[in-house]
């Protein structure tokens, strides 16, 4: 089977959006917060709300790149002993429910390393993932991972930051899937301002990149999404959605199916409200 050259679902979605002149909406959610069944329901809700692909976040004990909202979600999920394997298997369960969105697994490196790199990529493929983001694996350390990713047809999506400067070109030139542009210095989470040089930074990335570019960190509203819509191909929304999940926890963990559905509905409505309106 010639999988390494077969089309990746992320590429297909961007190609289609580009034709329609739309910006991709990419939600992030911490898996297992509050439990795996709810994660499957929330993934479904994200698709119904108009998301174009989704980041499945693996909870980690030491999430260096994350702010308090995602830290708390990780802690909640880890209390339920959610593992990397659990998070990977969520993808299959979501497919069984008919979800078509491309899946991107977001995990810090150590859980991946402990699972074994070969096994990790084999499982990603088996469970229908199209990409992965490993935030604490800069290009200097990613040789083995990126070779395995390429061989299994999974995009290893790199991050670039406003401080990356001369590194932008090197990172963007070899990027697969899309380039994840960090909007501002700091950790993930809602913020009131973006980095001063953000526009110049995005245009530098744009020039250097052969793949779509997406903006994340601190995108919390439709206004934010629209602010960047013209300069990039997609926006990633993490903490703002995870916070909605946190607020809906009383419903999401209720014994009553109707209440749980209300919780899912609240998150679905929030995600739908993030979609940038298309200019045409």
């Amino acid at each position: 089977m010639n999988t390494s050259t077969s089309a990746n679902a992320i590429d297909a979605v961007f190609a289609e959006l580009m034709q329609r002149g739309e910006t991709a909406l990419i939600p992030f959610m911490t898996m297992g917060d509050p439990d795996l069944d709810t994660s499957v329901a929330l993934i479904q809700a994200a698709e119904q709300a108009g998301a174009h692909m989704i980041e499945l976040g693996v909870p980690y004990s030491d999430p260096l790149a994350d702010g308090p909202v995602i830290q708390r979600a990780s802690e909640r999920a880890l209390k339920n002993r959610i593992s990397l394997l659990d998070c990977i298997s969520v993808a299959s369960k979501a497919r069984e429910r008919g979800v078509k969105l491309p899946f991107i697994l977001f995990s810090y490196f150590n859980p991946v390393l402990q699972l074994g790199l070969d096994r990790f990529f084999a499982l990603l493929k088996e469970h229908g993932f199209s990409g992965t983001i490993i935030p604490d694996l800069p290009m200097e350390e990613d040789a083995e991972v990126s070779a395995l990713a390429e061989a299994s047809g999974i995009h290893l999506i790199p991050l670039v930051a406003p401080t990356s400067e001369s590194r932008v070109e090197r990172i963007a030139a070899r990027a697969k899937g899309f380039v994840y542009c960090v909007s501002s210095l700091g950790v993930t989470g809602v913020r009131s301002t973006f980095h001063d040089g953000i526009d110049a930074f995005l245009s530098t990335v744009r020039k250097a990149s052969t793949v779509p570019i997406c903006v994340g960190f601190g995108i919390a509203s439709r206004e934010h999404a629209e602010r960047f819509a013209g300069q990039c191909d997609g926006v990633i929304v993490g903490s703002a959605i995870v916070r909605q999940v946190e607020e809906a926890l009383p419903q999401l963990t209720s014994d009553l199916a109707s209440e749980r559905e209300q919780g899912v509905q609240a998150v679905r409505d929030f995600i739908a409200g993030l979609k940038p309106r298309t200019a045409n």
């Binding site: 260096l64 790149a65 694996l137 800069p138 200097e140 991050l159 670039v160 930051a161 590194r167 210095l185």
Partner: peptide
């Protein structure tokens, strides 16, 4: 030069810290 002591060491940090 990569900060490696045999297989150990290295620089496993988010891109936001690399330039620093």
């Amino acid at each position: 030069q990569h900060g490696r002591f045999g297989p150990f060491g290295g620089k496993y940090v988010p891109e936001t810290l690399m330039n620093a």
